[in-house]
Design a protein around this nucleic acid. Sequence first.
DNA 1: CAAACTTGACATGACTCGTATCAGACTCTA
DNA 2: TAGAGTCTGATACGAGTCATGTCAAGTTTG
Lengths: 158, 158
Amino acid sequence: MSQQPRSRVANRPVTPGRTAPTRPENTALSPTQPPVDDDAVIEVQGVYIISVAARILDMHPQTLRKYERIGLINPGRTIGMLRLYSAEDIKKVRLIRYLSDELGLNLAGVEFALAAFDNMSAIKQRISSRLEGIPAAQKVVQEEMDLLFDSLNLPVDR
Amino acid sequence: MSQQPRSRVANRPVTPGRTAPTRPENTALSPTQPPVDDDAVIEVQGVYIISVAARILDMHPQTLRKYERIGLINPGRTIGMLRLYSAEDIKKVRLIRYLSDELGLNLAGVEFALAAFDNMSAIKQRISSRLEGIPAAQKVVQEEMDLLFDSLNLPVDR
DNA sequence: CAAACTTGACATGACTCGTATCAGACTCTA
DNA sequence: TAGAGTCTGATACGAGTCATGTCAAGTTTG
């Protein structure tokens, strides 16, 4: 299994459409960095520090670190490199846990499944946009692709 | 982790109809058996007993039996219950081996992946048929779904 | 008839996974 | 600024998985 080159920088390339994470009061380790400088400060990456995320998920912090090491998740970082887990990240970990615990996939399988989901979502998007002018066809594809997602037995949460 | 109900992963088939692309049941090897009936035009595809299949695949017979026990494959049987592996079956085992050896999936992951492939194929089929009257849309879907299959990194052979 | 097959049970070595710990350096909050 | 928490990297452990292997007793095939 190949690994993404680890970036040392607070990252999150992000596909379009990612909504700016909110900042719940809850245990938020306020990344209230004094504005390092100009711009950027706006894009708050995560909300929960690893110990909090682990508690929320009832999982061991080391497990979260391992998931990150093998490229399953990609939490943001503070300037000081502390991991920050967004609600998105938490949700993804829950999906990983479902695939692992409930379906019995190993981590290679989880990686495969996540990639498949992503690809399916992307294709659905692409088809829909290419069928812009043909609403009838768009509807058919929408319906069937939803069926396809259903067929994967994902947890309602997802 | 328990693993009795070997259907944890079993994605529900998208279509109620066909499921396994296994060879027609009545294609018994037994030369002593007269063809069940007319249409049994016997494809000379070849049908192998387990020892031959294992040799072809360079795998242990026990491994093939295990794959069958957990539902990954479904070779035919002679009247006397000897397993009969068709070319289809052989190909499927090769895919299983690829997913396992090359991608590192465990058997639960293989089960999941195979089900996903089936469902994707089925959906592609359904969409195509529902788009019968709109060739332009049909073409778009065809292209994109092929892209989706490509994205799964299947071996050329498959 | 003999060879190869059947099912079912159990065993083995190599590997995976989540968890755990240690050390030394760094970050963040109070 | 003190101290609790986090960082990376290494190492380790128990439990589980997987392919393979063996045994026994019975059946099928050529």
